[in-house]
Computed example of a mutant assay.
Amino acid sequence: MAITDDIRALAERFSGTLGVWAQSLDTGETVEWNAEETFPAASTIKLPILYEVYKQAGEGRLDLAERLVLRAEDIVPGSGVLKDLTPGLALTVKDLATLMITVSDNTATNLLIDRVGREAVNDSMRELGLRGTHLDHKLFRAPEGAPPNRSTPADLGRLMRLIAARAVLTPAACGEMLDILGRQQYTEQITRRLPDYDGFVEPGREPAVRVASKSGAIRGTRNDVGLVEARGRRYVLALMTRGCRDLRFHPDNEASLLLADVSAALYRHFVTGS
């Protein structure tokens, strides 16, 4: 398969390890590269957490309008905005879920983990057959020597496929999750090399490419999982890396550029046929 040759060529030039799982929602064709291997999840672990929030909401175990209070001891570093706001702020569960995805807010994520339960997330992933996904600790709260939260490209891709196909929970819940994922602000890894993509679309104009996604980054790792819709075609992709020698948090990080190249190759394969 030509796409596998393209991915192999990109992977062989990379200083670390690449994993890929992608599937056309139109034909069911699947592309895999190290898809069952385990990688640090970084912020892509927030996709299973989002799923658990909506699962518990649908079961009546939490209310998306319920307010959780931000305490000083809840604040953690890294991405997001809550770390810069005043403790005592009360946000709804849905607002926290939105912050967790759209700006990858780590403090919002930890508040949601406290609310839904770490083991509940893991149990739900096992129920879906996604046994390579493990939320072992809250963000920036790992015990000394603990392994990172982890997943596989196949797990994340299959979870995104289930949501995109509205095949889990309810169609309405999947629609809400996709709406939040569609507003993520860090889409550059997936979209950077897509020829039809425009990062700004005026009101009333339909975008040529729609992306609903969740990215993740820690030193040595860049990940992305998403749904891409363009030219009447739909596909999901999950891209993961580990062991990258470029440790910079920089737009031109080696792993970020690799994911952009892999994303472009998948776009050509699934959308343009070139």
Rank of each mutant, 00 (worst) to 15 (best):
D105V: 13
G145E: 08
L135D: 10
E127V: 07
G129A: 02
T133Y: 02
F140H: 15
D114M: 09
V116P: 05
N122L: 08
V103G: 12
A142K: 10
P147R: 12
E119Q: 13
L128K: 06
G117Y: 00
G132W: 00
N106M: 12
H134T: 14
K138H: 14
A108G: 10
G117D: 02
R141P: 14
T107H: 11
P147E: 10
A120K: 11
V103E: 11
N106E: 11
R118D: 05
S104A: 09
I113W: 05
L135F: 00
T102L: 11
A108I: 05
D136P: 09
P147V: 06
R141M: 15
V121A: 02
R118Y: 08
A146Y: 00
A142V: 01
T107R: 11
H134P: 07
A120P: 02
I113R: 09
V116Y: 05
N110A: 07
S124H: 10
V116F: 01
N110S: 03
P143T: 02
T109F: 04
M125Q: 04
E127C: 12
G129I: 00
H137V: 10
L130E: 04
G145N: 03
G132P: 05
M125L: 10
P143W: 01
E144A: 13
S104G: 10
L112F: 02
L128T: 03
T133L: 03
G117R: 03
V116M: 11
P147H: 04
L111Q: 10
R141W: 09
D136T: 13
T133V: 03
H137D: 12
N122V: 03
V121P: 05
A108H: 11
E127F: 10
T102A: 12
V121G: 03
R131A: 14
R131V: 15
R115G: 07
N122T: 11
N110R: 01
P143H: 03
T107G: 12
E119A: 13
I113D: 02
V103M: 06
